[in-house]
Every structure is written in structure tokens, then in C-alpha cells.
């Protein structure tokens, strides 16, 4: 379904593969850069990587599904990663989460119907000094409150 909209950008992927092919153990780097092309790692992308590196596709898939920053299905344009670790928890992360859930109408692990936002948990972002904290794509936000998080979401 999503495939039709996202043609495989083979040329970019080949560049990435060419860059890393010779250095062993670069699978994570390749996956990270490959994901940047389409926002997720499609089956075709994983197969191409497997083929080029000469490792089984099942292994590439296993690595891609182990790390929480990798996605094997299409996600929203913006991924909201909210920290629910203890320091954020005791500073009210649950209220922030509840506000996000209410504002967007989705639960962690889900994507809004318009494909704009995905919501998920992250482990500690090391922003405990400004807890509760979250990330939206590469951007970090701290000192969250219900109001502030609503404001942030609306600004996207």
C-alpha cells in the first residue's frame, strides 16, 4: 500500500552501501542512513542491504527490529518519543502522555490517521534535568506540561 507512494530510491541506497560495504560491522550505520531516505526500512531495502553485505535477510531484519530507532513499517512524519523512565515518571510524564494521547487520539505504538504523528516510548533521553522530556524526530523538548506539549504539537 505505502509501497506505491515510496518508490525505492536505489541510487541513494547504492551510495550508502558503497560507502560502507568495505568496513565490517557497518550494518547499523547503513540502516540508519537508509532509513533517512524513506523514514522507514521497507522489506525491499532490507533485502538489498542483505544482498550487498552477503548476510541473510533474516539477520538484517532481526537487527532492524532490535533497535527502537529503526522502523520496518511506515511511521508518521513526526515520531514523538516520550520518556517514561522513573525521573520523568515522578515529574509527571504520565500526564504529558495522557495529553498527547488525547490531543492526537493515538496510543503509544500508533500513528495518526493522517500519517503525521507516531507516538512511542523511549528509554531515558538523559534530559532528566528538565524532566519530563520527549523527542520529536531529532528535536528534544523538556520541562513538559500538558499545556506546553499541546502547544508543541500544534506548532508542527
Amino acid at each position: 500500500m505505502a509501497k506505491a507512494n515510496c518508490p525505492l530510491p536505489t541510487s541513494n541506497l547504492s551510495e550508502i552501501l558503497d560507502k560502507y560495504k568495505q568496513s565490517p560491522g557497518s550494518l547499523l550505520e547503513i540502516l540508519r542512513e537508509a532509513q533517512a531516505i524513506n523514514g522507514y526500512l521497507s522489506r525491499e531495502v532490507l533485502q538489498l542491504i542483505a544482498e550487498e553485505l552477503g548476510i541473510p535477510e533474516s539477520k538484517v531484519y532481526g537487527v532492524a527490529t532490535f533497535y527502537s530507532l529503526f522502523k520496518t513499517t511506515p511511521t508518521g512524519q513526526y515520531i514523538i518519543r516520550i520518556c517514561e523512565s522513573a525521573p520523568c515518571h515522578i515529574r509527571g510524564a504520565q500526564d504529558v502522555l495522557a495529553t498527547i494521547e488525547k490531543t492526537l487520539g493515538i496510543k503509544p505504538g500508533e500513528t495518526t490517521p493522517d500519517g503525521k504523528f507516531s507516538l512511542e516510548f523511549t528509554s531515558c533521553l538523559g534530559l532528566c534535568g528538565v524532566a519530563p522530556a520527549m523527542m520529536i524526530n531529532d528535536q528534544v523538548f523538556g520541562n513538559l506540561t500538558g499545556d506546553r506539549v499541546r502547544e508543541i504539537i500544534n506548532s508542527f
Binding site: 548476510i55 541473510p56 535477510e57 533474516s58 539477520k59 531484519y61 532481526g62 527490529t65 532490535f66 527502537s68
Partner: peptide
């Protein structure tokens, strides 16, 4: 050396 199955997810 087939590699049809492997651990996935966490």
C-alpha cells in the same frame, strides 16, 4: 547456511 529464520524484535 540458509538463514531462513532468525531472532527478531526485542
Amino acid at each position: 547456511s540458509v538463514g531462513a529464520i532468525a531472532p527478531a524484535n526485542r
